[in-house]
Design a protein around this nucleic acid. Structure first.
Lengths: 324, 324
DNA sequence: GTGAAAGCGCTAACAC
DNA sequence: GTGTTAGCGCTTTCAC
């Protein structure tokens, strides 16, 4: 059915090994041979069988998206969906599939070793990883693992510039006259929580404004709880920056139920720009999160085995709507 | 690293083929041998290498989620994300990855043949497929293809019972006093559009109410356009059932901008129960869509090669909120 | 610069 | 019932 390397070699009048070398792009080959093999390959529409290749190289044929978390519920998240989708889409172009699995925070070493020993796995994309997990990374995985989140020596990081987004958002709130700006953060164990906090604190201190930090968990329920907390501790708050749209929507729900006007009394800004941020009342002011671009780049890096700088930051853009 | 069949065979004191037969569960084997091989396999933690198996059986090692549509934008949809995620999660348990690709409606035969000839593909899950596409299905794919949507001889269907959901929703609207109920449908080319229409028409005719059908496209923008259309053609409409939450939210946005009360003047119901259906104002009354369960069952069916009835319908449940 | 040959881990004839 | 054997398509020494 599909042409094999043998077919290409025969068509080009060379041996299988020569064809393999040319197509693999290593070993020696005369320019002429090179040309003939390439031509034959494209003419026949040759694509190497990843299974056969995996068998001999022992490198595997599926890319695992491993989401770090305390329980399997971390997989049940539209953010994860977007990462997996982008990975599956990129993989399709390489004949590589995407697998999704939970990487339990407390038994990360075990699971990572199993992953490293699994011949079917060609690489992994870590999501929401922590330093502890990265420290437990088996050496044999280095070079075929990337991280959407914080990096590690040998593990390039792909992430949104959420520090920059935070600065920009605080500046926007300040410019629109807000002075008592609270921030709802992500859960403390997630490393992606820190940079926005730093950026927020820096901005507030620089402007001589009070720092009002409340922990959240990226969910709407968490946003509701955090908003109640803010109202309780600092009743004069005039703006809230929630580091996820879900939390921002939860916060707005609380304010609405209290009869507090948004953005009249309190401005609320989110982060992520989820599909329906624009359909709430009021429409949510937020910052974009190019998850698909990030995940696609991450997947491509491990599939192409390209060298990557330790950190690649993707810019986030403010989306001005009604809530702030 | 990982134990091979050879290791198991040696540990059990049998040949590789015997071990293979036992573990594969076909061919003959004495109860004693069977026992020893099984014991050795579990003791060593043996798992067959899907790459090697794929190579010899020619059955492939990745499950393709093929989304039928007019253009690649059909992939860019939270619904697709959920299907892919569930597939990737089920696949992970089998050492199988999920790939995502667009199945262009106008060149379906070509793409399907490529899929059939691709040695890396073990099966496919069709999404939003049409009869025309199913008709073009190569024979070699039969038995390893399932459909989330309409089925076909040899292609079992897994779908939500959207006809039942429609009936239930119309009944709910009727029970709450609505009599001039319009329905916003999906795009005509999608087969999943028909059953809700039939159910709606049957319900309306049975109740002696006027049929008011407007085509949509499952997007919020389509919902806005459809709502304008309804208002234009039947100004006395008192309820709208949109067959997707996105369209319902679009419809609500239009009504809000016109100063029309929801549900006071016009009730609006959606379908899907997307994560933030509950955060709009008013919170959206809708019907659940167990996409993950459906996709997981579909993926499992092709991976396990189990026989399936031609159609498996998954119940949808009404979620009563504020909008209807 | 090129080809012959071995072998990755597994399945499936086929002989015993 | 069981073992022997021949590959699946590819990469990779190692001679030439």
């Amino acid at each position: 059915m599909a042409p094999t390397l043998e077919d290409v070699a025969r068509a080009a009048g060379v041996s299988r090994s020569t064809a393999s070398r040319v197509l693999g792009g290593y070993g020696p080959a005369s320019p002429d041979t090179r040309e003939r093999v390439r031509a034959a390959a494209t003419r026949l529409g040759y694509a190497p069988d990843p299974a056969a290749r995996a068998l001999v190289t022992g490198k595997g044929y599926r890319l695992v998206v491993a989401v770090v978390g305390l329980d399997p519920a971390v997989l049940d998240d539209p953010y994860v969906d977007r990462v997996v989708r982008a990975t599956a889409e990129v993989g399709a172009r390489y004949g590589i599939g995407a697998s999704l699995q939970w990487l339990p925070m407390d038994s990360a070493p075990t699971v990572l070793h199993r992953l490293a020993g699994d011949r079917s796995v060609c690489g992994a994309v870590l999501v929401n990883t922590t330093e502890a997990v990265l420290r437990a990374l088996p050496r044999s995985l280095i070079g075929r693992v990337v991280s959407i989140g914080i990096g590690w020596p040998g593990v390039p990081s792909f992430d949104v510039d959420n520090g920059g987004a935070t600065s920009a958002m605080i500046q926007h709130l300040y410019a629109s006259g807000r002075r008592r700006i609270a921030m709802v953060t992500g859960p403390a164990w997630m490393p992606c929580t820190q940079r926005p906090i730093d950026a927020y604190q820096a901005a507030m201190v620089a402007a001589g404004l009070p720092v009002r930090l409340v922990p959240g968990d990226f969910t709407a329920a968490g946003g509701r709880a955090a908003m109640l907390d803010v109202l309780d501790r600092w009743p004069d708050t005039d703006a809230v920056f929630a580091t996820s749209d879900a939390m921002a929507l939860g916060a707005i729900a609380v304010l609405r139920s209290r009869g507090i006007e948004v953005p009249g009394d309190i401005a609320v800004a989110g982060f992520d720009d989820i599909p329906f941020a624009s359909y709430g009342v009021p429409a949510l002011t937020t910052a974009t999160h190019p998850v698909e671009r990030i995940a696609a780049a991450a997947a491509t890096a491990v599939l192409e085995q390209t060298w990557m700088p330790p950190v690649t930051a993707y810019p986030s853009e403010l989306v001005y709507r009604e809530s702030a």
